[in-house]
Design a protein around this nucleic acid. Structure first.
Length: 309
DNA sequence: TGCCCCCTGCAG
DNA sequence: CTGCAGGGGGCA
């Protein structure tokens, strides 16, 4: 689910709800979702599920700050530890206050968990809950259908030594991200598709498959254009388009085509404003063209053949 | 720089 | 049943 706008939505929501709370207990329901000590695989049954041992360093720590780097989430605790989380394709972080009744072990409130039937509700923890944090005033659930995502615990000073965080490029909202920066990044990849270039997290962080297609649409660039063919005026347009689509995504709390939810469990709204993504066969919003789907950089890619060149 | 893989569920 | 899905790591 998550690209920069979705992760930013989750980080902002969690910041409102869980900063200042203490971690009272943690259940790891899927060993591979909490990358910690793989030797500790001795499990026990909790409510019919298998649970794994937890690192003691995480217990009784207070949550100080939640931030985002690229598509990764950093939760800083007191006493020098941080929790790192990546949602990958289907991860969710859902927070349910304890006073939301009926309380008790599940944390109570039932949520529509991406189910097409609006009346369907899913109790937390759900069958996709992989890590369950009991906090002082509520419960935080890391749900991840496909188990591609991960949670890690690391000393705060080592966060950016982490294999994932260490190789991230520039944030699109960093002052250093400028048209000249984008131009030079593109020059270094003359033979790559422009889509592959803007998807490369070691150059710019946070753009994924949805927002790359959207940005290329607003820049009027065909996704298969090679880096060396891109002109300076085109770079300027692409730069503006990238910032525009990411800002719009954040404004609408992300795209909920499938599993993306805010920490409160509600859907984002950006899917209603997409220009090309998931709009194959539909008319272009700015010309008479029909949105076409092809394969670029191994990903389904949507564009308007009439206005993107 | 591309391809396969991790995993599960859903549409066609 | 096959193919495909908001990501990214490891391998030619």
């Amino acid at each position: 689910m998550p690209e920069l706008p979705e992760v930013e939505t989750v980080v902002r929501g969690l910041s409102r709800h869980i900063v200042g709370q203490k971690i009272k207990h943690v259940e790891i329901l899927s060993a591979k979702s909490f990358l910690w000590n793989p030797k500790l695989t001795k499990s026990k049954k909790v409510g019919g599920k298998t649970a794994y041992p937890i690192p003691q360093e995480i217990l009784r720590r207070t949550i100080k700050k939640i931030s985002r780097r690229g598509k990764g989430i950093i939760i800083d605790l007191d006493k020098g530890y941080s929790i790192l989380i990546h949602l990958k394709m289907t991860g969710q972080l859902i927070y349910i206050p304890k006073d939301k009744k009926p309380g008790r072990t599940t944390g109570g409130k039932r949520l529509n968990y991406g189910h097409p039937d609006k009346n369907f509700s899913q109790a937390m923890p759900s069958k996709h809950t992989r890590v369950w944090f009991e906090l002082s005033k509520g419960n935080l659930y890391f749900n991840d259908q496909r188990r591609f995502g991960w949670v890690k615990l690391t000393p705060t000073q080592d966060v950016f030594k982490d294999k994932f965080f260490a190789k991230l490029g520039l944030e699109p909202f960093d002052k250093k991200f400028t048209p000249p920066f984008l131009w030079s990044a593109i020059q270094r990849h003359p033979k790559a598709n422009i889509k592959a270039i803007i998807l490369d997290q070691s150059l710019i962080t946070g753009i994924g498959n949805i927002y790359s297609d959207e940005a290329l649409f607003y820049a009027r660039l065909k996704p298969t254009r090679l880096g060396r063919s891109i002109t300076k005026p085109e770079v300027t347009k692409l730069y503006a388009a990238i910032k525009k689509v990411l800002e719009k995504g954040i404004k609408y709390s992300g795209t909920s085509i499938n599993t993306h939810r805010t920490p409160e469990g509600s859907m984002g709204k950006m899917q209603n404003y997409l220009a090309v993504y998931e709009r194959e066969g539909q008319p272009c919003r700015s010309c008479k063209g029909i949105i076409t789907k092809i394969r670029v950089a191994g990903r389904g890619t949507h564009y308007c053949p009439m206005c993107q060149h």
